[in-house]
């Protein structure tokens, strides 16, 4: 059981969350060329080791999170809200 420290709900079992995917992908503008979209949608770096990835606390606050995690050891280094305003709001609160 991976335990994920949700910035909103506290540390919870990973089974409350849903894994999204590679958090480093920058999706192009909607009118960007097909090749850009192809690369974002189909190509993966598939890092073995530390990667930033997206998770949603789907059975909790439903916030999308950026989780820095080692894909070999499963160790989590950091968790922050994906939405920049949320991340900023948390910093202000802290």
């Amino acid at each position: 059981m991976i335990r994920i420290p949700c910035p909103f709900c506290g540390t919870r079992d990973h089974s409350e969350f849903a894994y999204g995917g590679d958090g480093a992908i920058i999706y192009p503008d909607l009118d960007a060329p097909m090749q850009d979209w192809h690369d974002a949608v189909f190509q993966r770096e598939n890092i073995c080791g530390r990667q930033v990835e997206t998770w949603q606390h789907v059975n909790g606050c439903r916030m999308w999170l950026l989780v820095e995690r080692d894909t070999m050891t499963h160790e989590i280094y950091s968790v922050r809200p994906a939405h920049p305003d949320m991340a900023q709001a948390l910093e202000v609160t802290a």
Binding site: Y19, G21, C48, Q51, T71, H74
Partner: peptide, 9 residues
Amino acid sequence: YKSYAQKGN
């Protein structure tokens, strides 16, 4: 979730 570890949960 993505993983390279040969350990289940």
